[in-house]
Design a protein around this nucleic acid. Structure first.
Ligand SMILES: [Mn+2]
Ligand SMILES: [Mn+2]
Ligand SMILES: [Zn+2]
Ligand SMILES: [Zn+2]
Lengths: 146, 146
DNA sequence: CCCCAAATTATAATCACTTCAAATTAAAAC
DNA sequence: GTTTTAATTTGAAGTGATTATAATTTGGGG
């Protein structure tokens, strides 16, 4: 089942309308699922086939999906929010130079806060963010030996 | 040696001027060091004794300190940047309800990316972010048994 | 005490995102 | 198929944090 089909079903299941705008946004999410797109990027992709969609609709739809827990927001202090269709637990690796963002599927069993370190918080999630310099940026900077 | 003294010394060491504005910003950072203040919070504190400082100066000074690696920016997607005078490696615990941000000084030895998972990146740092609900917010929401 | 590069300031601009109110429309009811 | 209506879409205006600009002031070396 494609992501579009899945999201259409989930919308229907919750009595939400399936508009053309939403379908194309779902398609754009599927097409760009590998690189954690921003709302603007989704808008740009959707406008290639539906030139009059508004940015507001894109934000509306993305926020709906987040609320429905079918989409995850990833915010790493770059000044804009990225969206992640992968809602499984996973972590991220960010290039400080170009902003490239890669999934890390490794588990870190060790990452757990025992009650005495939790300051009374109820802990609902955690994420690990690695930062560094990607291959392309090492290349551009002439950082590769050999 | 107080934080103010330390920062004044570091400024002098790099040939930077020590202005009254900067001194009061250093004092504000020291005073608020426990709660990861924003630029606006620093501005507010400084204005209690120096009512005419500009927000621009606060941002300038904070960014200088970040560049000098004497201050760390913490951005967790709350829409504004917080500043952290603790530049040692440590992690954070964030309340999703009220934004309270607490330091975690525990080490997670496990958190390391072996080359085969690093996608060719040179990894320069990592951070763990825990999210949850703080005691105060549990209280307000009547979530505490007993 | 002078000098001037560095720092400060007010103002305007930017940028991602949100709000709003009017126009459109999906889909349920007939 | 037609009607109905609440949900959705839309462009325009608004927000809030941060940055840019350019004129004014000043710390600190000589
Ligand atoms: Mn991801
Ligand atoms: Mn901290
Ligand atoms: Zn890169
Ligand atoms: Zn809280």
């Amino acid at each position: 089942m494609s992501l579009e089909e899945k999201l259409v079903r989930e919308m229907r299941k919750r009595g939400k309308k399936v508009t053309p705008q939403r379908r194309f946004i779902f398609q754009a999410l599927e097409k760009e699922s590998d690189h954690h797109p921003t709302a603007e990027e989704i808008l740009h992709t959707v406008r290639q086939t539906l030139p009059d969609v508004s940015l507001t609709t894109v934000y509306n739809t993305l926020h709906n999906l987040v609320e429905m827990e079918l989409l995850r927001e990833v915010d790493l202090g770059e000044g804009m929010t990225r969206f992640d269709t992968n809602t499984d637990i996973h972590h991220h690796l960010l290039c400080k130079r170009c902003g490239k963002l890669v999934d890390i599927h490794r588990q870190f069993r060790n990452v757990f806060l025992p009650p005495e370190d939790a300051h009374g918080f109820i802990i609902t999630s955690h994420q690990v963010i690695f930062e560094g310099i990607c291959l392309d940026c090492q290349m551009k900077a002439g950082m590769l030996k050999q």
